[in-house]
């Protein structure tokens, strides 16, 4: 083989490898960004979870309720990784978290401390099909919730025209683990309360909003608060608006 042939052969080989590699990369990326199924408790963030899960199924075998299933090829989600469908079998929130304990890679944190801190998903309610929202005293989701009163509470909601109020379930995202028992037990034909990936439904206010009537201590660059526990930083001196500058808005309004 002379030098020219070698260079041509090397270029052909590299091009074939690069072509295959790019296709492969596209496939892997596409799968990595596809719809996310509900993960077992203690899972890393989805991208890292899917990457560090070795797809051995030890968590599936450890689950005493047959909740977990390995995602089959061509089902939504990365094939071979564990997931569950609450309407089939929800997570019954074992206190010792056997699924996470047996994970050999750490895709599920084997030392995950407290099942109540799991965030497998977030329950959301469809008021259009929720019986409570139709005026019935259903409240099944509230009753079956393992964190009743913390993750789901029932609140009184005024009803138009009728003098009877509604009693509607409300999910609190700070406590909901996404176990899905509510979805499993919801009596409607298609569950009116469902566990979904929080990213699909949760918004974020943004730090620049100042909410009236709420303590602002949590905001990092909060305006001087009146809370006595915190020494108020020196108020930023503001140049007072020139007298009369904004008065045109009220011109003629005062009696």
């Amino acid at each position: 083989m002379d030098r020219r042939q070698f260079i041509v052969a090397a270029a052909q080989g590299s091009a074939a490898a690069a072509c295959g590699g790019l296709l492969w990369y596209a496939l892997v990326e596409q799968q990595a960004r596809a719809a996310v199924p509900l993960r077992p408790p203690g899972a890393r963030a989805e991208r890292d979870f899917a990457a560090s899960c070795i797809k051995c199924g030890l968590c599936v075998q450890a689950c005493p309720y047959d909740t977990l299933k390995l995602v089959k090829t061509a089902e939504p989600g990365v094939a071979g990784t564990p997931a569950f469908t609450p309407r089939d079998v929800p997570c019954y929130m074992c206190e010792n978290i056997p699924c996470a304990r047996v994970c050999p890679t750490g895709a599920l944190d084997p030392q995950f401390p407290d099942i109540a801190k799991a965030r497998m998903g977030l329950a959301v309610i469809d008021p259009e099909s929720c019986l409570s929202w139709q005026g019935l005293r259903c409240e099944v989701c509230y009753r079956v919730c393992p964190l009743r009163g913390k993750a789901i509470s029932v609140v009184n909601h005024p009803r138009q025209i009728s003098k009877h109020a509604l009693f509607v379930p409300v999910v609190h995202s700070d406590a909901c683990t996404g176990c899905g028992i509510c979805e499993k037990k919801c009596p409607t034909e298609v569950a009116a309360i469902r566990v979904v990936d929080p990213k699909l439904v949760q918004g974020r206010i943004g730090a620049h909003y100042r909410l009236g009537g709420k303590p602002e201590a949590a905001a990092p660059e909060a305006l001087p608060s009146t809370a006595p526990s915190k020494p108020a930083p020196a108020p930023t001196p503001r140049t007072p608006p020139p007298a009369g500058a904004l008065d045109y808005l009220n011109r003629g309004a005062t009696p």
Partner: peptide
């Protein structure tokens, strides 16, 4: 191995 490094996931294990 290159695709694993580039994508951050185990490339061969995925397919």
């Amino acid at each position: 191995l290159v695709v694993s490094a580039a994508s951050g996931v185990a490339a061969f294990e995925w397919l």
